[in-house]
Every structure is written in C-alpha cells, then in structure tokens.
Design a protein around this nucleic acid. Sequence first.
DNA 1: CATTATAAACTAATCAAATTAGATTATCAA
DNA 2: TTGATAATCTAATTTGATTAGTTTATAATG
Lengths: 196, 196
Amino acid sequence: MKGDVTIDLIAQTAGDIADAVGFENLSLKEVAAKLEIKSPSLIFHVKNLNGLKSVLGQYTTRLVVAELLRAGFGKSGLDAVSALGKTSIDFAVRHPGMYESIQWLNAYTEPENDEKPDARAFQQITEMFFALFKDTKLTELEVSHIIRGFRSLIHGFAVIAGHKGFGHPSDAAESFDYCLSLFLAGIRSKLDETIE
Amino acid sequence: MKGDVTIDLIAQTAGDIADAVGFENLSLKEVAAKLEIKSPSLIFHVKNLNGLKSVLGQYTTRLVVAELLRAGFGKSGLDAVSALGKTSIDFAVRHPGMYESIQWLNAYTEPENDEKPDARAFQQITEMFFALFKDTKLTELEVSHIIRGFRSLIHGFAVIAGHKGFGHPSDAAESFDYCLSLFLAGIRSKLDETIE
DNA sequence: CATTATAAACTAATCAAATTAGATTATCAA
DNA sequence: TTGATAATCTAATTTGATTAGTTTATAATG
C-alpha cells in the first residue's frame, strides 16, 4: 500500500533499523512497520527472518564493494591495502548494524541454507584483497594468511568501533592506523626476506 | 529436583549448549531442559536470557584468564604475547560458543545494564596483555593500540575458526601464527625505532 | 472482452520462547 | 514451632515469527 516495496527498499529499511538498534535486534515486525506493511507481507518478499538478514547482507556487501573499489582506485600494493582497510573501518563506524550483516551472511548461511546463491557474495571482498598481492613473491598460502589477518584486524576494529570505541570515537580509527602500520611493516620485512 | 543447580553448573551447561548450537541460538528453554528444571526456575537464577548469557560470559572469562595465566607463566615479552594469542585461538576453536560469550559480555552489557558489576570481567584479559608491554619504551597509547590490534586479530581468527575454517581445520591456527609473526615483527621494528 | 494466473497484501490462526504471576514445598534460623 | 527464604512448579501472558486462507489488482491469454 505504498510505493513499490522492492528488495532494495527492504534492504535499505532494514539497514537503517539495524544501524539504529543493532543487527541482532533486527526484526520483521519493525521493518514491516517502517515499510507500512504487515509482517506476513514482508515475509512474502524475504521468506523469513534469516531471509531478511540475508537480503541485508547481500545489499550491504554490494555497497561496501563499491566503496572499496572507489577507495582502491589508482592505488597499488600496500598503499591500496591500507586504503581498503581504512575504508572498511569507516564504513563499519558509520553503519555498525549493516556491517555486522556482512559477517553474518558470511558466517551463517551454510547451515540452514534455504537458498544457495547467497553465500559467496562476501567473497568478492576477499578477492579484492587477494588481487593486491598477486604480483608479490609471496606464495598463495602466505597471501591467504595475510588476507585472513587483514580481515580479522578489520573485523575486530569494526566491532570495537561499532559497539563502544570508548574514549574518543576516533580512537578506533587511530588504533587501526597504528596496527596497520605494524602489520605492513611486518609484511615488508617478509618481502625483504624473500628477496634475500 | 536434581543436585544443586549452582550458577557454575548453569554456566557449564549453557557453555556446552552454546558450543553445540552456537551462542546466538542459546535458549533458556534448552538449558533448563538439560538441567531438568523448567524455564521459570532457570529464570529465577539468571533473571532473563541476557542474564544467562552474562553468566556464561563471566564464567568463560574466568576459564580463559586461568588458561592464559598458565600459558604465559615463565615467559616474557613478545614470547609471552605469542603464547597468549595462541592460547586464545586454541580456546576459541575448542569452544566457539563460549568464546563468543566473552565478546558478547564485553560488547553488549552497557545498554540494558540491569546489573553493574558485570562489565569489567573481560578487562582482566586486556590487563594481562598490557602488563607484558609495561617495561618497553612504547607509550601507554601505543600499547593500547597494540592491545586492540591483538584483540582484533585474535577475535577475527576465532570467528573464522569457530564458524568455518574452510580447508583444513588447523588452517586458522596456521594463519594466526603467520600473522602473529608479522605483527610481532612490526612491533620489534617499532621498538628498534624508539631506541634510535 | 472474458478468463485465468500471478503478485502482493491482508486478516485470522498457530507456535514457540521468554517472561510474569501466583502457588507450593523444603529447609533453616530464631 | 514458627516464620522467612530459597527453589521449584504450574498456569497465564506477551511478543514475534510463521502459516493458512482470502482478497484484490493487474497482466497475459484465448
């Protein structure tokens, strides 16, 4: 009974709510209300609560991928890695609930997998990082370790920033910068080793 | 109607269930059933679902602190840091649900804070890491950055390991070792810098 | 144009889990 | 013995998700 209730509109609405009340408190009821429809009508579109979360996760992944592409454009190597990291943190700070939906989609789709195509949306982000190390002397395995490290680092800071970030709100970003520099220094020393 | 239902017994039971079904699926109902009491009786002990999670989080924190103390005993400096990190990952792999309860307790106590004393259980772990850097030339702020980095790294890997760890199950631990070495190398170079 | 199918809502159940209210029982201290 | 408290129970109540069954509108088909 409104303008077209599209999947994207549902995702946007859910995203606003998730950012406001936390991803874990996302409910069909509240999203439906904001869309001015009833819960069963929303269920018609998303199947169930996990479906809603999944829709949000996929939508958010698209958004983040777009931001990351923009952030890394024209940069290369560790410089680009750094940009991707900072952009991720920034997004997580601006959209804590949405950010969590990405992790949820990645971690929690497999079990009760109603729909198959869901899963690998997230993987794009991993692949972006991968590409940045493709021409180094590091082995595939090493790169995959590093990717996991970055993902962990980013995720950890995102969670900290999203939930509390006690002290200054900018603290998390500052800490991330610092750790990023440590990590990058470590990678550089690894690259030097390999050269020897 | 069983042997004494103590808070610790409740926590252990909840921990088993959380590890089995995932922290997010922890329910009063199932814990009560395993304890052979009814939900309202369990609520008498823990107040509500968040109370149950909180009890689990505090219990797990105690366990982990004990393991960390053991792991770090007799070691010093980055060597000890490394041991704490590995021990944390190991715990998270063995007890994914319980591990998440620590994070939950830390991140999600503040808002609907029924009970005050809850919160700072987690902080002990942070303090253990802090102690290891107390005698270096790093500033308080730098150390706090590093702590956050470690926490993030550990958390990220724990999540990966707990949820999927695709490929070999030992993969996460291996990745963590690798990243740990990068991070530590970064710290060492920072320490050298400071000396100059 | 009339008919059929489908999409998108709705209302009215139903279910499940948490939580509240109001006993009941057992133990323990005074 | 009596009264307080702890620990349970059963019986509501509440909330939110989900299912069932209907309605309405539009679009495609004959």
